[in-house]
Computed example of a mutant assay.
Amino acid sequence: MNDISYRRHLAKTITWRLVGTADTILLSWIITGNPFVGIQLGIAEVTTKSILYYIHERIWYKINLTSKGVKLSSKKRHVLKTITWRVIGTLDTVLLAWFISGSTVAALQIGTAEVVTKMLLYYMHERVWYKINFGLANRKNR
């Protein structure tokens, strides 16, 4: 991978974390009625999700999934990786929301809402980045 592609991945990571954190802050504020719960959750989430995401990436880098000796296709692997990350990410949000808000109901509501909003926002984020050539030296506009 060349140097410019690393910049692309870093830029995608940062923009997604900003979008994802803003989503969590807004959902938490709406559900709890307290903007400070949203802000505290957003700040905590940046740290925990960064650590958890790194661990998740390292695990997926090291595992070799096969079915009866046949390696899984990249699409199946990406689906499994996406599902495992969403489970980890949502559990992280629910636990943080419970700790910060003190309410299991609010924490579960935030986590449930987040599953839907994060999938929609992530899809839109990917579509925007699909159109951007930054970090893709050999690609022309699609």
Rank of each mutant, 00 (worst) to 15 (best):
residue 7 R to L: 12
residue 14 I to N: 09
residue 31 I to A: 12
residue 32 T to A: 12
residue 24 T to V: 02
residue 37 V to Y: 03
residue 37 V to E: 01
residue 14 I to M: 10
residue 43 I to K: 10
residue 34 N to L: 10
residue 50 S to H: 06
residue 47 T to Q: 15
residue 29 W to C: 14
residue 27 L to E: 11
residue 47 T to S: 13
residue 24 T to F: 05
residue 21 T to Q: 06
residue 15 T to I: 08
residue 17 R to L: 12
residue 18 L to Q: 10
residue 12 K to R: 11
residue 55 I to Q: 08
residue 8 R to C: 02
residue 25 I to E: 00
residue 7 R to I: 12
residue 53 Y to T: 08
residue 56 H to C: 06
residue 49 K to H: 09
residue 9 H to A: 09
residue 45 E to Y: 05
residue 46 V to D: 03
residue 42 G to A: 04
residue 10 L to W: 13
residue 59 I to K: 13
residue 52 L to W: 08
residue 9 H to E: 07
residue 25 I to M: 04
residue 35 P to K: 00
residue 12 K to H: 04
residue 34 N to K: 05
residue 40 Q to C: 00
residue 42 G to R: 00
residue 55 I to V: 11
residue 44 A to L: 06
residue 13 T to D: 04
residue 56 H to W: 08
residue 47 T to R: 15
residue 8 R to G: 00
residue 52 L to F: 12
residue 21 T to S: 09
residue 59 I to M: 10
residue 26 L to I: 15
residue 19 V to A: 14
residue 27 L to C: 10
residue 57 E to V: 11
residue 56 H to V: 06
residue 34 N to C: 12
residue 11 A to V: 05
residue 41 L to F: 04
residue 55 I to N: 12
residue 6 Y to F: 13
residue 46 V to C: 05
residue 49 K to I: 06
residue 50 S to T: 09
residue 39 I to C: 00
residue 48 T to P: 08
residue 23 D to K: 10
residue 38 G to D: 06
residue 42 G to S: 02
residue 44 A to I: 03
residue 39 I to H: 03
residue 26 L to Y: 11
residue 12 K to P: 03
residue 43 I to E: 08
residue 5 S to H: 07
residue 23 D to L: 13
residue 56 H to S: 08
residue 28 S to H: 05
residue 22 A to R: 09
residue 53 Y to M: 09
residue 6 Y to W: 11
residue 37 V to H: 00
residue 55 I to H: 14
residue 59 I to F: 15
residue 8 R to L: 01
residue 51 I to K: 07
residue 47 T to P: 12
residue 32 T to E: 13
residue 6 Y to G: 00
residue 35 P to W: 00
residue 42 G to K: 00
residue 43 I to G: 03
residue 41 L to G: 00
residue 44 A to C: 04
residue 44 A to V: 02
residue 16 W to G: 06
residue 48 T to N: 15
residue 31 I to S: 15
residue 42 G to C: 03
residue 49 K to Q: 14
residue 29 W to G: 11
residue 25 I to H: 02
residue 24 T to K: 03
residue 56 H to M: 02
residue 45 E to T: 14
residue 47 T to G: 11
residue 9 H to V: 04
residue 33 G to L: 12
residue 22 A to S: 14
residue 43 I to F: 09
residue 38 G to L: 05
residue 30 I to N: 11
residue 32 T to P: 06
